[in-house]
């Protein structure tokens, strides 16, 4: 993502006369244009062309405001969980040797490969009313599925590898020298983690968090299954679900919400690209 924005190294630039280079550039531009810029441009046009009053009405309705709030809550909690798990798992995978370490690494990547809908269904099977944990939890008055906790679980599941995959290469690259040096200087595990490990992985961590945030805000499939897509009283629809409903019901206001999501995501990606650039410069 941000890597594609970075300028090529001088040594990687081929002479201009190469026909292959022109062909490559055409393919690249066509890809970005047809698949990214044109669709996003049309959505922006559809969002803004009905005028500001319509735009305001679409994003300030009770349904939209509740959806925004739910999206923010779920994304915030999921990023928090994903970051905690991601860093803990990263340290476990790079700093400890144990049986099944490689398998754990593969499993941690699984959410990238599994369809979000499948992930959502799996969570329903486990935490649903008739699921393994769902029944006892329900009896204790805690509902997971068709409620915010389930939506957070589903979103955390799909975004977990983002932080993990950012911090693992950095943890591997820095090695254990600095951590060992901190140990012999008198720092226990906790101090070593906060004073040495965290500052060292901070750029990668921030980048992973921003990517995860963008992913969480835009999550649809897993949340659609787990939330039950309830509108009206007890709404569990996040922004993406409201957009889908408005499009399917031919209701107005879908593009305006989509536009808000695009702006949020692009802003997040710009922040991430900026962090990466600063990191490369230093």
């Amino acid at each position: 993502m941000a890597d594609t924005l970075a300028p090529a190294r001088p040594s990687a630039i081929r002479p201009a006369r190469s026909a292959g280079r022109i062909a490559l550039r055409t393919v690249g531009l066509a890809y970005v244009g047809v698949l990214v810029l044109v669709p996003l441009g049309i959505i922006t046009w559809r969002a803004l062309s009905p005028g500001m009053p319509a735009f305001w009405a679409a994003i300030s309705s009770e349904q939209a405001v509740t959806a925004f709030r739910l999206t923010a809550e779920v994304a915030f909690a999921s990023v928090l969980l994903g970051t905690t798990f991601g860093v803990a798992l990263g340290i476990l995978l790079t700093r400890y040797h144990f049986v099944g370490r490689r398998l754990l690494g593969v499993l941690a990547d699984l959410p990238m490969a599994v369809s979000p809908i499948v992930a959502g269904l799996a969570l329903v099977l486990v935490y649903g009313r008739n699921g393994w944990f769902g029944g006892p939890l329900e009896a204790a008055g805690i509902s997971i599925i068709y409620a915010v906790p389930g939506m957070i679980l589903a979103t955390t599941f799909v975004s977990l590898p983002l932080v993990l995959r950012e911090v693992v290469p950095v943890l591997q690259e820095i090695g254990t020298d600095q951590e060992q040096a901190a140990r012999v200087l008198g720092a226990g595990g906790w101090h070593t983690f906060w004073r040495i490990t965290v500052p060292t992985i901070r750029p990668a961590l921030t980048y992973g968090v921003v990517l995860a945030l963008a992913r969480c805000v835009g999550e649809f499939g897993a949340v659609a299954v787990v939330s039950g897509n309830v509108s009206g009283t007890g709404q569990t629809q996040t922004t993406t679900l409201v957009i889908a409903e408005r499009v399917q019901q031919m209701e107005p206001g879908a593009y305006q919400l989509a536009f808000v999501l695009i702006v949020t995501t692009v802003a997040a990606l710009l922040v991430a690209a900026n962090i990466r650039r600063k990191d490369e410069l230093s």
């Binding site: 820095i174 020298d177 600095q178 060992q180 140990r183 200087l185 500052p199 060292t200």
Partner: peptide, 20 residues
């Protein structure tokens, strides 16, 4: 006794400087 309670000074071959 864990390393952080031994009060020893240790110098590593590759410096192990705290980069930040």
């Amino acid at each position: 006794v864990p390393a952080h309670e031994r009060n020893v000074g240790f110098v590593f071959q590759h410096y192990a400087a705290f980069q930040h």
